[in-house]
Amino acid sequence: MVLPLLLLVVALCAALAGWAVWFVVRDRAVILNQLWGGAVIEALLLVQAVVAAVAGARGEGEGDPLLFWGYLATTLVILPVAAAWAFAERTRWSSVVLAVACLTVAFLEWRMWQIWTGA
């Protein structure tokens, strides 16, 4: 785990969630550009997985690997599934779904950092 990468992911999640909340207020459904934003976050999550795998193989990381990789696998699944689920709904509720997904990923990132550092 690399802290700057993690912070970047969390910041982007917060930004995309903010964008989605703005759309909820404006009574708008999720648009394709927001899904591209989600794809950028997903790509960074994949980079993070590779970085964590390399660091883990070198014996870094404090917490239980099973727990850590369970969280990491969950973060990888959430955005694609939520994006597809949100995009099929053409009302403001799709924007709520996207916001919930982004905030969940941000929360899981924080938990992963806790596990990784043994906090």
Binding site: A82, W85, W93, V96, V100
Partner: peptide, 29 residues
């Protein structure tokens, strides 16, 4: 599964993931 229900299913799905992960972890360890 429409409207507010779409949000409800999303939160249920996340909780299903969390609960499954947790139970698998403790069952194994």
């Amino acid at each position: 599964g429409r409207g507010l229900g779409r949000v409800l299913v999303t939160v249920y799905g996340i909780l299903a993931f969390a609960a499954t992960g947790r139970s698998t972890f403790v069952l194994v360890t």
